[in-house]
């Protein structure tokens, strides 16, 4: 049956299952300062240099990268905040929302996201 392709294969030893996320998690945490700095720089750039929608798109791309990876590594809250920020920014851009108003609406989520990431890094 072709549908059998969707069946779950036999399980593997527990130790093998946890290896990958642990290694990648350390790398993700080590990159947190860079990622927070990137978001900070984009917000700063937007506020001081013309408030261009392209900068908001780059913010959406930055949060997109965080969203999928953090959630896969078990950091559900960071994943959810990043996903919300990305979705809000992309929807706003697609709907033609005025850029300053769009960042204002997403700012709280972005700030909380950066705070939560810093907490994980400091822990």
């Amino acid at each position: 049956m072709t549908n059998a392709f969707r069946q779950v294969p036999p399980s593997r030893p527990a130790a093998a299952e946890t290896y990958v996320p642990a290694a990648a998690k350390a790398r993700f945490i080590s990159l947190i300062p860079d990622r927070v700095a990137e978001l900070d720089a984009l917000i700063e750039h937007f506020s001081t240099r013309g408030q261009a929608p392209e900068v908001l798109l780059r913010m959406a791309e930055a949060t997109h990268k965080i969203a999928g990876t953090a959630a896969t590594l078990g950091m559900a809250r960071i994943g959810a905040l990043a996903a919300k920020a990305e979705t809000d920014l992309r929807r706003g851009l697609a709907a033609g929302t005025e850029p300053v108003a769009l960042l204002r609406a997403s700012r709280a989520t972005l700030e909380t996201l950066m705070d939560e990431m810093e907490d994980v890094f400091m822990a």
């Binding site: 290694a23 990648a24 990159l31 896969t72």
Partner: peptide, 16 residues
């Protein structure tokens, strides 16, 4: 993937 960490996750999982 444009995220090196996610590439690491996939690579590790495949090696596993």
């Amino acid at each position: 993937d444009d995220d090196p960490v996610f590439l690491e996750i996939m690579e590790g999982t495949l090696r596993n």
